[in-house]
Design a binder for these strands. Structure first.
Length: 816
RNA sequence: GCCGAAGUGGCGGAAUUGGCAGACGCGGCAGACUCAAAAUCUGCUGAGGGGUAACCUUCGUGCCGGUUCGAGUCCGGCCUUCGGCACCA
């Protein structure tokens, strides 16, 4: 056995041993002090890069620490395996997406093992396995039964050259296709939606969650709840049955300032109310708006344009008629698809009015209103003016007064609008979960019976994009009898958004082989919700919102598992290349973890990643400092294996050694509780250096030394599991260090006997005095005032007062 | 534009409730070991000024101001960077 630290030899040895022993397999039957530690599952992109290491090492350290704290920790892993990148890579390389994905999983498993992470591989789940996506389909059927899944015509991004629908992320900022750079247009297709908007208010309730405020804010903004009033304007157009035009506003106090009305171009009233002389222009405008992608239409630089429909509507409060225009700044899906134009108090309306010459009528004014023409909308507070019986109401109260009035007159009601839209889950792509629906000419959309699940994704589909879902051209897949009438029918050929897969993977982990339902109900009851979740902020909205939605849907299916799926959430930061840019092959700034593991071992690389800065901040990554960690582990190695001069140690020496041990345990415990891995490592380095000094200084007490070195190894174990295990074994301690209890600290032993009393004159540091830790105020002040340094700076001036901070500081204040 | 976070040595970064600014590490300099180098170990290392010296002294946490005996930390106003949202009526 070599005495040199040789990570390559010990790491694979211990990984094999741990695996053979099932050291990290969790007994889910034992629910006492259970701790479900979840970390976001990786996409099967190919190789684990530095970002993966960074985001999985932190949770691994935490999971190991919790386990040493005596908790029964479940720390599973799986693969998010469906999705576009597999298809794109497959198209590019001529490999089947299935092969591409599963080859990648094999490679990634090996890389995960080289990390030394304590994942429980026996509970692995892969979302592209039929045993997994079968339950996606099962959930879909339940949602369909409950009316929470529905089909509707929806606009999509369409690339006329690739003949395919594009996700918003695939449309470049200039409105062209990311692949062929053709201008993307609109196309309306029948798509499946999930009614997440039914849960909007519930999703705004974050009570009981220990989540970063930032994430909560992002979700709140994403849902975008606005309280307002729907006001019914009158329509009196010959030959039009519709007599009402409903408009949503959050500013009912400005209703007397309406000088025009704007409808979204797609608003269903538009073709009805447009007068014959305006028809050609209106139709041209609608056509042009339809051609634009939503991205273009919503871009900030977009100038406000519109056309007059020729029709007017009646303001029930001011008793005035105002012209109805259409403009693409009105969005069909928000509110009622109509905007009341109040140019004096809304900047968009102001710009529109300036361009088309509508009057700007001030109806909210501050006390010192000077009646000059506005050069921008007035958005500040004030009282209502030019508003008939409401004149004089402060804006806030005016909102209520107008709302009360319209409600009492039956011309409106208080209501709430959301920015959140229903979740579009249809994808016209191959590599995803088939939607379990059959379209029958007589019965319509018929759900596939539960016992026929899973609807298997066929291996032999031609998946190159041609304009419709690849499955639509697979005759064997598409042609099927209608489950209801048995007549020939066609299967739904769209697949599901992959966010469906990640909605509930953490539930599946508990029983990935279970075939009576998505999860073994007993395990679900004991192990859910997740105690701690970690992952990147890029999932602050989509994944984390969809998963919360799904959790509440599951509750409404009759299974209550707690109010929220993830009690505690912590976000790690993102690792960038040395140049501060995102790491990518095309930029050439990628640092491969495998090379670093080969060079210094996994333990050094793990510690280095955690040492470079606060884990929740991330930042540019360079290898400059890795030598420091390598030296430290080598120092620790030789320290632990060295034999100090055991003998009659001075009591003070022993006391100092034990103090170092217990102070470090206290510090390390605090650091782990707060995810401060960088300062945890700093504390262990200090302890290592302190022990080396103690060993050199003279005789050392054997028991105190064993306590110190044992404690150091225990604290090192979560960070650097291999070297800790090796040294634990080499020092004759019983296997395994990872099954030991986290050390506890003793407050008396950690206490300092002496403290440095800082002495200031007028807040400036003038002296430092070593004193006993139990010094009292009088004595401290006396010593401070006696200090020659202090006397020099007082310089015969009158001492005004003396401030004392117990055990820390004396500040002498003299008149200036 | 709005919301949020952050600005500390040559570099990554530390710093309980306001109380020694710069822990820990990198890099640099000097020394030890060595025939030599690498590795390793030891010491020094925020900037300026003074002193042969231990030491003394001024300045210093993006900028300006404030509160306080005392501010990296609290308050007001700017600047910069990074995230998120962005015609949401």
């Amino acid at each position: 056995m070599s005495d040199r630290y040789n990570p390559q030899a010990i790491e694979s040895k211990w990984q094999g041993r741990w695996e053979a022993d099932g050291l990290y397999r969790t007994d889910l039957g034992d629910a006492s002090s259970k701790f479900y530690y979840l970390t976001m599952l990786p996409y099967t992109s190919g190789d684990l890069h530095i970002g993966h290491w960074y985001s999985y090492i932190g949770p691994d350290i935490q999971a190991r620490y919790r386990r040493m704290q005596g908790q029964n920790v479940f720390f599973p892993i799986g693969f998010d395996a469906f999705g576009l990148p597999a298809e794109n890579a497959a198209i590019r390389q001529g490999i089947h997406p299935h092969k591409w994905t599963y080859d990648n999983i094999d490679r990634m498993r090996g890389q995960f093992r080289s990390m030394g992470a304590m994942f429980d591989w026996s509970k692995e789940a892969i979302t592209s396995d039929p045993e997994y996506y079968r339950w996606n389909q099962w959930f879909f059927l339940k949602l369909f039964e409950k009316g929470l899944a529905y089909r509707a015509l929806a606009p999509t991004n369409w690339c006329p050259s690739c003949q395919t629908v594009l996700a918003n992320e695939q449309v470049l900022a200039d409105g062209t296709c990311e692949r062929c750079h053709t201008a993307v247009t609109h196309r309306d297709l029948e798509q499946w939606f999930l009614r997440i908007t039914n849960y909007a208010d519930e999703l705004l309730d974050f009570s009981g969650l220990q989540w970063p405020e930032r994430v909560i804010t992002m979700q709140r903004n994403w849902i975008g709840r606005s309280e307002g009033v729907e006001i019914t304007f009158g329509l009196d157009i010959p030959g039009v049955d519709q007599k009402e035009l409903r408009v949503f506003t959050t500013r009912p106090d400005t209703v007397f300032g309406v000088t025009f009305m704007v409808l979204a171009p797609e608003h269903p009233l538009v073709p009805l109310i447009t007068t014959p002389d305006r028809r050609a222009e209106v139709e041209a405008y609608v056509e042009q708006a339809r051609r634009q992608t939503e991205i273009e239409r919503l871009s900030t630089e977009h100038e406000k344009t519109g056309v007059f429909t020729g029709a007017y509507c009646h303001n029930p409060l001011s008793d005035e008629d105002v012209p109805i225009w259409i403009a693409d700044y009105a969005l069909l899906w928000y509110g009622t698809g109509a905007v009341m134009g109040v140019p004096a108090h809304d900047q968009r309306d102001f710009e529109f009015a300036e361009r088309y010459g509508f009057p700007v009528r001030v109806v909210i004014a501050p006390a010192d209103w000077d009646r000059e023409p506005l050069d921008a909308a007035y958005l500040e507070s004030g009282v209502m003016v030019n508003s008939a019986q409401f004149n004089g109401f402060p804006s806030a109260e005016g909102k209520d007064a107008v709302a009360d009035y319209v409600e009492s007159k039956g011309s409106g009601r208080r209501t709430v609008s959301y920015r959140l839209r229903d979740w579009l889950i249809s994808r016209q792509r191959y590599w995803g979960t088939p939607i379990p629906i059959v379209h029958c000419p007589t019965c319509g959309a018929v759900p596939v019976p539960e016992e026929q699940l899973p609807v298997i994704l066929p291996q032999d589909a031609e998946f190159k994009p041609t304009g419709e879902s690849p499955l639509a051209r697979h005759e064997g897949f598409v042609n099927t009898p209608c489950p209801r009438c048995q007549e020939p029918a066609r299967r739904e050929s769209d697949t599901m958004d992959t966010f469906m897969d990640s909605n509930w993977y953490f539930i599946r982990y508990l029983s990935p082989q279970y075939d009576q339902g998505p999860v073994d109900p007993d395990l679900a009851q004991t192990w859910l919700p997740v105690d701690q979740y970690t992952g990147g902020t890029e999932h602050a909205v989509m994944h984390l919102l969809y998963a919360r939605f799904f959790w509440k849907v599951i509750r409404d299916l009759g299974v209550t598992l707690g109010s929220e799926p993830f009690i505690r959430l912590f976000n790690q930061g993102q690792i960038l290349g040395p140049d501060g840019q995102r790491m990518s092959k095309s930029r050439g700034n990628v640092i491969a973890p495998d090379e670093q593991v080969a060079r210094h071992g996994a333990d050094t690389f793990r510690c280095y990643l955690m040492f470079i800065g606060p884990w929740d901040e991330g930042g540019p990554f360079g290898l400059e400092g890795i030598a420091g960690i390598w030296r430290w582990l080598n120092r620790a190695w030789s320290l632990i294996l060295s034999e100090p001069n055991f003998g009659a140690a001075e009591p003070a020496t022993t006391r100092n050694l034990r103090r170092l041990t217990h102070q470090t345990i206290r510090k390390a415990t605090e650091c782990l509780e707060g995810f401060h891995f960088n300062t945890l490592i700093a504390a262990l380095m200090e302890m290592t250096n302190g022990l080396i000094r103690a060993r050199e200084a003279g005789p050392v007490d054997r028991a105190a030394w064993d306590e110190a070195t044992g404690g150091l190894l225990l604290m090192l174990a979560p960070l650097a599991p291999h070297i800790a295990e090796e040294l634990w074994a080499r020092t004759g301690r019983p296997y395994s260090v990872h099954q030991q209890a986290w050390p506890s600290w003793d407050a008396d032993l950690a206490r300092e006997d002496e403290v440095t009393l800082v002495v200031q004159v007028n807040g400036k540091l003038r002296d430092r005095i070593q004193v006993g830790a139990d010094i009292d105020e009088a004595r401290a002040k006396e010593l401070a005032l006696a200090s020659p340094q202090v006397r020099k700076h007082i310089d015969n001036q009158a001492v005004q007062r003396v401030i004392y901070v117990p055990g820390k500081l004396v500040n002498v204040v003299v008149v200036r």
